[in-house]
Simulated scan of single mutants.
Amino acid sequence: MATLEVLSTDHHAGLRLGPPLSADRHFVQIVLDEFESVAARFPILFTKHPETGAFYAGALLGLKPGENIAAGSGDGAAVDRLFDLVRQGFFISGDHIAIDPAHTRFVRAGGQPVFDDGGTPAVALRRVQSALSQLHAGLPQTEQFLKRLLALKLVEPIDLSFRFDDGERLALEGLYTISRDALAELDDAAVIDLFRQGDLALAHAVLGSQHHISRLAHLRNDRLVGG
């Protein structure tokens, strides 16, 4: 378990921050405010937390654990803007921001300063602060959104199986999406309620993002064939 320290100019004046580390992240948790931008580039799917069993939403960036296809593509900059990656190494601790000083994102040379010469948050830290704030507010909102979908029986498992030109076969398990059929079968009152809460637009963003799954598969296949 990481040992956290409250971030302060007294102890961390010279702290420098490297870029987000995403090469081994194939699924990154996201919140509702990210759905629109994520859906434009990556598949949005749901999975269950291994400890609590609660559903959460994420951007699918690769087709197997430890492999991030999107990070090495033209979408790499968009990957680095995901809130959960921006805030790597930083945590909310009560009313303060804390850091894991042993996190590999903190570098001795290069990188961006966390504080400027006057001791105020530099650009890199302001981005982290914004990401932490968005996550802090967005995680419970996203949890409630998923609970509303589950109450309407709109969440279903998604079957994702792939065969690549080098002979490798992959099957992704434990992922879920929104059922198009169940959504279409809702009565008018339920649809109006979803619309008024903003859930209908979010649901369509999730469904619309699914075409990126085949794009990820094609990117992966091209890399395998190209060596």
Rank of each mutant, 00 (worst) to 15 (best):
F46K: 07
F46L: 12
F46M: 13
T47L: 07
T47I: 09
T47R: 15
T47D: 12
T47P: 00
T47Y: 05
K48W: 04
K48S: 07
K48V: 08
K48M: 09
K48N: 09
H49T: 07
H49Y: 05
H49D: 15
H49A: 10
P50Q: 12
P50N: 12
P50T: 15
E51I: 02
E51Q: 06
T52N: 04
T52H: 02
G53F: 00
G53M: 05
A54M: 10
A54E: 15
A54G: 07
F55A: 00
F55N: 03
F55Y: 15
F55I: 05
F55Q: 02
F55H: 02
Y56W: 14
Y56A: 08
A57H: 04
A57W: 05
A57N: 06
G58P: 01
G58K: 10
G58F: 04
A59R: 06
A59D: 08
A59Q: 07
A59P: 14
L60Q: 02
L61C: 02
G62N: 02
L63S: 04
L63Y: 09
K64W: 05
K64E: 15
K64H: 07
P65D: 13
G66I: 03
G66D: 03
G66R: 04
G66F: 01
E67I: 11
E67Q: 13
E67D: 13
N68E: 02
N68Q: 07
A70F: 01
A70H: 02
A70P: 00
A71Q: 14
A71F: 10
G72L: 03
G72A: 12
G72F: 02
S73N: 03
S73H: 02
S73V: 00
S73Y: 06
G74K: 03
D75A: 13
D75N: 13
D75K: 14
D75S: 14
G76L: 12
G76R: 11
A77G: 04
A77I: 09
A77K: 15
A77W: 11
A78Y: 12
A78P: 03
A78K: 11
V79I: 11
V79K: 10
V79H: 08
V79D: 07
D80K: 05
D80W: 10
D80G: 11
R81E: 12
L82M: 10
L82T: 00
F83S: 11
F83W: 12
D84K: 09
D84I: 02
D84M: 11
D84V: 03
L85G: 07
L85C: 07
L85Q: 06
L85Y: 01
V86S: 08
V86M: 09
V86H: 07
R87M: 14
R87S: 14
Q88H: 09
Q88I: 15
G89Q: 09
G89L: 11
G89F: 09
G89S: 06
F90Q: 02
F91S: 09
F91M: 09
F91C: 04
F91T: 12
I92L: 11
I92S: 05
I92M: 06
I92E: 11
S93W: 10
S93I: 05
S93L: 13
G94D: 14
D95H: 08
H96M: 10
H96I: 03
I97G: 13
I97W: 07
I97T: 15
I97Y: 06
A98P: 06
A98C: 11
A98L: 06
A98N: 11
